[in-house]
């Protein structure tokens, strides 16, 4: 059974009296342990889809089931709780909290758990070790390179051990070398830790790292290509 099941999803935005249809009858299945790349031009609906999968936005109609739970029917508060344990999010601009160290940034999502202070710290250190930044744990974001910031962002995304990792252009702000390292890391998380990764990207080279690539064109799934 697929980890993610998107069924008959319509998404309509209303601006004043105008209605903009982003998705019409969208359907996708994403298997557990899959590494999926979502490509498409700006305005095609990639980020909207990612937001819906993260439970930040809800479809106008249709259902989104993740691990058997229909998140499209969840209330705002329940969605926040669900997100805290089931989804790790990686941003294009890293979005680390500037006044927290790398370790504290990684530990942040664990404040929502019942773990003790010591357990939280241990898990954050482990996450930083996985991304190869254990020795930078006391550095603030301004003291890190772009690649290191993104790796910290990835550590933050995996620290709660979520089944689903959503990445919105994770290499969009990095040079080629740093981008390659981030993609290596995502592949490793997918391959070695069994994480399901859904990555939005404009970069065909990045998409090549994924096991499957979907193209979105004006909200329509035009092409599905298996690599």
């Amino acid at each position: 059974m697929a980890l993610v099941q998107v069924r008959n999803v319509d998404k309509v935005f209303r601006r004043d009296s105008e209605e903009i249809t982003v998705f019409k009858g969208l359907a996708i299945d994403i298997a557990e342990g899959e590494f999926l790349a979502l490509m498409g031009p700006s305005g095609s609906g990639k980020t909207t889809l990612l937001n819906m999968l993260a439970g930040l936005d809800q479809p106008t109609t249709g259902s989104i089931e993740i691990a058997g739970e229909n998140i499209a029917a969840m209330k705002r508060r329940r969605l926040a709780e669900w997100r805290a344990t089931n989804v790790g999010f990686i941003f294009q601009l890293y979005n680390l909290i500037p006044v927290l160290t790398a370790l504290q940034n990684v530990e942040l999502p664990l404040l929502l758990t019942r773990l003790s202070r010591r357990e939280r710290r241990e898990r954050a250190v482990t996450a930083l070790r996985i991304v190869g930044l254990e020795d930078r744990s006391d550095h603030f974001p301004r003291q890190l390179s772009g690649g290191q910031e993104q790796r910290t962002g990835i550590a933050r995304a995996i620290v709660t051990d979520p089944r689903l990792i959503l990445a919105d252009e994770p290499t969009g702000d990095l040079d080629a070398k740093a981008a390659a390292e981030i993609l290596d890391l995502l592949q490793r998380l997918n391959r070695d830790f069994g994480k399901t990764v859904i990555m939005v990207t404009h970069d065909p080279n990045a998409a090549e790292r994924a096991g499957r690539t979907l193209h979105l064109e004006k909200g329509v799934l035009l092409e599905a290509v298996r690599s």
Binding site: A54, L56, R76, R77, A80, E81, W82, R83, A84, T85, V87, F89, F91, N95, I97, L108, P109, L111, L112, R156
Partner: peptide, 9 residues
């Protein structure tokens, strides 16, 4: 970002 990480209102 904090809300996205799951922090509630």
């Amino acid at each position: 970002v904090m809300k996205m990480l799951g922090f509630g209102d």
